[in-house]
Design a protein around this nucleic acid. Structure first.
Length: 451
DNA sequence: AAGATCTTGTT
DNA sequence: ACAAGATCT
């Protein structure tokens, strides 16, 4: 019996353009695939509810597709460092391959495992798969990381172009099926990832098909029909011109390399590529600032005089009952579909922080819980961008006016009509007064930064 | 990835 | 009178 190669899947729930899986296939030995639900290791952020829903269906899709190719996907729950060692023992694996992760708790787990397994004599390899540019390869002239997007993205584009995506590896080796030891697996149902009592996921089911095949279908459709109009239409939430790739990228059902080359091959859109760039920049930032979700990137924002949060206002924001059509439409779209148009994310976030004066971390946590694309880097990065506390952030005095934004980007009210036709017109705040209050609070931050 | 207001240019 | 552009916050 040949000792197998263990491929540990994490944020890369795909078969195509999966360098770890391809390298395992080339190694020739049978493959055992593993996915761990790690709710135990120190520092792991618990998945939000919408993320758990997506994960369930995406893992199910991956399991079925690997099974068709003769590769068992073992599911286990527990601290990854312990589980991987157990699976190595149980399977008799002599090599362990995975694609890299970039958040700090995950990196700590992975590097400890890599050195531990290697000193046990195993072959361990990690691969670049989830980012176009490894964070440490993008450096300023001074050898530091970037804190402003434009020079960051310029530096990325001066690096060698992103590699071509890898084709699906050949996984079925004649005679290899069934020769592996059987390794016990949880069932997905054991993990209780889906909501019950109540089952609030009907809107998610209507909206999304998780899994690699649907991700590629969407990419093809986006490139063929939406990309030509992208630059002009991406900011109109009723236009349906955005890629809808965010949850697929977050879970790695499709790689950024596939998205990059599909877009450039179709004539490209500098704007769409730069959106991929913002995703890169968010991960670049998280890599060098691991507390991005909890700490202000600009330390002077620690002096922001947040008032006691208004529980009623917060609830109205969450439920889409603020009386501002575009805010309410966005929050309802989010609740129903687990997604919100990018422009509207900025508007609703600005409203929470700058009109309700509620700490960006509270909004970030709500998005974390309700977005199917909740991403450990992009979500806190973008909240800090809106709040003004982040990297290359919106200046503190840039306060969106939701009514002007609606006039500009939803001039016919189609988006508001779609999501908030029945919303109450009663406005919970005065935009002018709350704007002044926010400017006053930011002034405190500004003055605190001076000697 | 902005808003308010002031300035300049065109009817 | 109004719009586009510059400037400050």
């Amino acid at each position: 019996m040949t000792s197998p190669t263990l491929v540990w899947f994490r944020d890369d729930l795909r078969i195509a353009d999966n360098p770890a899986l391809t390298a395992a296939a080339e190694r020739g030995a049978p493959i055992v695939a593993l996915f761990i639900l790690d709710e135990e290791s120190a520092g792991m952020r618990p998945l939000g509810a919408a993320s758990r829903w997506w994960l369930h269906h995406s893992v199910e899709s991956l399991r079925a597709r690997l099974a068709e190719r003769g590769v068992p996907l073992v599911l286990r729950r527990g601290a990854a460092g312990v589980v991987v060692r157990a699976i190595v023992r149980e399977s008799g694996a002599s090599a362990v391959f995975w694609n890299r992760r970039y958040a700090s708790a995950e990196r700590a787990i992975d590097s400890e495992l890599k050195s531990g397994l290697r000193s046990d004599g195993l072959e361990v390899q990690s691969f670049a798969a989830s980012l176009l540019f490894e964070p440490w390869t993008v450096q300023t002239g001074a050898g530091t990381h970037y804190s402003v997007f434009t020079p960051f993205w310029r530096a990325c584009q001066a690096l060698p172009a992103p590699r071509l995506p890898l084709p699906e590896p050949q996984l079925l080796h004649p005679g290899s099926a069934g020769v592996q030891r059987i390794v016990a697996s949880d069932t997905l149902a054991d993990w209780n990832l889906l909501p019950t009592a109540p089952d609030w996921a009907a809107g998610l089911r209507e909206t999304w098909t998780p899994g690699e095949p649907a991700a590629h279908d969407r990419l093809r459709e986006f490139v063929a029909t939406d990309l030509p109009l992208y630059d002009q239409a991406r900011d109109e939430p009723s236009a349906g011109a955005t890629s809808l790739l965010s949850p697929r990228l977050r879970w790695g059902e499709i790689s950024p390399f596939s998205a990059w080359h599909a877009a450039t091959g179709a004539g490209g859109s500098a704007r769409f590529l730069s959106e991929l760039g913002w995703r890169e920049f968010a991960w670049h930032t998280l890599f060098f600032f691991p507390n991005l979700a909890t700490a202000n990137l600009r330390a002077e924002f620690d002096n922001f005089p947040w008032p006691q949060p208004d529980a009623q206002a917060l609830r109205a924001w969450r439920e889409g009952n603020t009386g501002f059509g575009i805010v309410d439409a966005g929050m309802r779209e989010l609740w129903h579909t687990g997604h919100m148009h990018n422009r509207v994310r900025m508007i609703t976030a600005s409203f929470l922080v700058k009109n309700l004066l509620i700490d960006w971390r509270i909004g970030e946590q709500w998005f974390w819980d309700t977005l199917v694309d909740a991403d450990a880097a992009s979500n806190p990065f973008n909240w800090q961008w809106v709040a003004g506390s982040g990297a290359d952030a919106a200046p503190y005095f840039r306060i969106f006016n939701p009514e002007l934004q609606a006039k500009k980007f939803d001039p016919h009210g189609l988006y508001v009509q779609q999501w908030a036709a029945d919303a109450s017109p009663l406005k919970i705040v005065d935009l002018g007064l709350t704007r002044k209050a926010a400017l006053g609070a930011y002034d405190v931050v500004k003055r605190s930064g001076r000697p």
